[in-house]
Each structure stands twice: as structure tokens, then as C-alpha cells.
Amino acid sequence: MIKNMTCEKVRSLLSAYLDRELDYHELRSVELHLIDCPSCQEECRTLRATKDLLGALDSPKLPREFWPELREKINSGSASDSYSRLLVRVLVPVAALLVLAILPLASATHTKASKSLTQARTNLVEPYVREHIISELDRPFSDKTSLGFVAAGQAVTMYSSDFLESYDHSAPHEVVTSSNRAGRRIQAEPFQRVMFLSPK
């Protein structure tokens, strides 16, 4: 829609008007305003003159050394790229091999430490669990199933998975038998199985 614009609005659009970058309605509105507004006409003339003045600037030539220097830059850049590629292709595999070589040693050390820790935990906690289960087994009306679940829950909480994996499953037999309570070995076995999650 073509509107009656104020001088201020028209003046803000004059550069775009000169550049033919207004839409149809804006263009017609500016044109209509300019017909009757000498001050905006003057504004428009001086802006056009400013725009035309810029055309007085000479067009420079490209310096002769422009491309030779750029080629050299690209070449040296490519050289550094090649160096980077060399780093990636040679040094990274070497580093990877070194890591592979070191990893088993580190792992062995870690496993050793892990085993020590597990052993410490076992020494501290296991006797109490064991004694609890064994004492419960002595009671004639104890709920064996429930006790099994309690034992299993305690086992999972107290014994880390690496312990479960590395644990010598023959040990509970020995432990129970070493308690000198005849007949308990048979009763204890189901709970040992639950505790150590390894059915026999």
C-alpha cells in the first residue's frame, strides 16, 4: 500500500531508493513524496553525488608479486600439511603400538592391586557373613529360602564383581568344613552357591 511518508522516513530510504532496492510500495511512496518536497530532493541529490564520487576512485592493478607470493605460501602450507600427515601416519601408529605394549603390564599391576584389595575386604567381612549364615542354619525353624536371599544380597553388596570372578570357588567348602560343625557342609552349599553366584 502506498503511504504518505514523513520526511524523516523518506530520508531513511533514500539510499535504497537510489540503489533500486525498495519494494514497489516503498518506491512509489518515496517518489510521491519527492515530487512535493524540495528539501528531500536536495537530500537525495547530495546522496547521489556522494555515491557517484566513489566512482572517482581508480581501479588498482593486482601487484605482480601477488600470485608468486601466494603460491609460495600455499606450497609452504602444503608442506606443513604433509608434515602433519606424516605425524598422523607414522607417529600415531607408533604411539598406539607403545600403548599396546605397555597396557598388559599396567593391567597386570592393576589386577595385582585389585586382588590385594579384594583379599583385604574378604578377610574383614567374609567371616561375619559366613558365621551369620551358619548360625541361622542351626536354627530348626529358620526360613532357608529367605536366608538364601539375604545371603545373596549381602554377597552382592560386599563382594565386588572382580572378587566374584577371581574367587576360588573351592574355598567355601574348605571354610565350612574347617568350622568343625559336622553336617553343615550339605546345608551350607545352597547358600554358598547363592552367595557366590556360581552354581556347581
Partner: peptide, 20 residues
């Protein structure tokens, strides 16, 4: 662009008004 030209016009006033 508009603000730039207006500033240029101010800077180059003698040439701009001479031309107009």
C-alpha cells in the same frame, strides 16, 4: 549503506556540493 553514505557526504562535503 545509508549511514555510511551520509557520513561520507559530511566528510566530502566540498566535493559533494560542488558536484550537485
Amino acid at each position: 549503506i545509508h549511514r555510511g553514505r551520509r557520513l561520507l557526504r559530511k566528510k566530502l562535503a566540498p566535493y559533494v556540493y560542488q558536484e550537485t
